[in-house]
Design a binder for these strands. Sequence first.
RNA 1: CGGGGCGUAGCUUAGCUUGGUAGAGCGCGUGGUUUGGGACCACGAGGUCGCAGGUUCGAAUCCUGUCGCCCCGACCA
Length: 504
Amino acid sequence: MSEKTAVSPTRQEDFPEWYQQVIRAADLAENSEVRGCMVIKPWGYALWERMQAVLDGMFKATGHRNAYFPLFIPLSYLEKEAAHVEGFAKECAVVTHHRLEAKDGKLVPSGQLSEPLIVRPTSETIIGAAYARWVKSWRDLPILLNQWANVVRWEMRPRLFLRTAEFLWQEGHTAHETSEEAVEETMKMLRVYETFARDYLAIPVITGEKSESERFPGAVQTYCIEAMVQDRKAIQAGTSHFLGQNFSKASGIQFQSRSGAVEHAWTTSWGVSTRLIGTLIMAHGDDDGLILPPRVAPAHVVIIPITPKEDTRAAVLEAADKLAAQLREVSYHGVPVQVEIDSRDLGGGVKNWEWIKKGIPIRIEIGPRDLAQGTVALSRRDRPHKEKAFLPNGDVLSGVTGILDEIQAELLARATAFRDANLKVIESKEDFYKFFTPANSDKPEIHGGFALAHWNGSAAVEEQIKNDLKVTIRCIPFSDSPEAGTCIFTGEPSKQRVVWAKSY
RNA sequence: CGGGGCGUAGCUUAGCUUGGUAGAGCGCGUGGUUUGGGACCACGAGGUCGCAGGUUCGAAUCCUGUCGCCCCGACCA
């Protein structure tokens, strides 16, 4: 009998379809009747709430506070920054009316607005306008704010979590007295994202700067964290922008400096979105569904009572409740161990598989035989699904955080090994093209990865490679000792290797 | 927005060429037997065949339009 996977097709067979099926199998989200928009279901939203909680704490710890700015932005605001217009104009939802009137049994828009409003694709301009009001003196700086919000970008090809017309994110917006301070802020928040990705999502990321063509519209410099997922493509998991004085000039954020001169503030913005959920799915999921890193898992442990006989049912359920209560007393990195009890009247196998698909780190079965022996059967999501350890009750309580840490570490180790195995130093144009060309062009197999190659810094070369291979520069990685060399495409001098990949 | 494909029950789909008013598997409900890894039996609910026109005595089936989804481009977190 061949081993049946919980998710079909497998990653090897059809990665994009596998991704969609994992979302369904894990009950994370579904497509809405509104094109490009998603319904985030409780398990998916709980995951987002965990991410929010951790990130919010990290933002507060770095001196930021939360605020909230309007969903609607006057059209004229977007026009203020030329590059910004260029970047976002083509994907804005526009509100033109403020009333509906009944007409022939239908509702038709009425009450035209004197100036159309756009639904925020990002909030630089409206926050900039507020900062312009708030900043008078160098003593008013810095302003360090964040907002948790939804934004709308009218995308051509939506994909659940990865690219949706509406998505949830946080956007940090800061204003500073000096360029140096703003740059420092930009880097600081990038490091927050890097830490979050590594220590919580168990995803190793490459940090670096975007090339000009990938830069945020209106930014002076865009920095990013780039992750590799299991089809070896890159995904930008977070960005941090040094905006220079572009937006403060556009919005009029001016202050009197220590010397009395009127100067424009230096601003930054930085964000991560629900795309992190998509990244997590593709980084860790397997052919049996989602795998959640314990530090962001909405629940750590599910207890599945096994009640084959009526006369032992009550005792088993009682033991399950007791174990759950004891586990909840245990603290895992500052949060109580989150325990679910699945006492639905279903077969044990069915319940087990549901939780496997949902990616819960630990499954504990407790049945009559365990009661007699004072044990439980414990399974881990990072191990083969049939593997069970029979542990004395006490060992579960004392060992649960250790097991969770092991799972967390294992996921990071796997993702890192995978990333490193598919990261190649490439020295010639020929090897580069070979690296990114699938053997089967009709139905491309998983191929490629991250290529570290020298580049002369020319946007034209980037454009050519993008046209030929759909490969782009994901980032110019930070390096203490950049190794100079020769551009593999032009033979011209290169300051350092950059990271090339196909991307989401 | 261009090129291709597809819309039949919650999901996967048969039927369409050759028009006669819809069938299956999974899932769901009830009852029972089960339950330490995706159980079984019986009964049952669920479909204006994406939508709107047209042709026809009659349309899931043929024609036109439209909407949506998927894949490939262009664009993007």
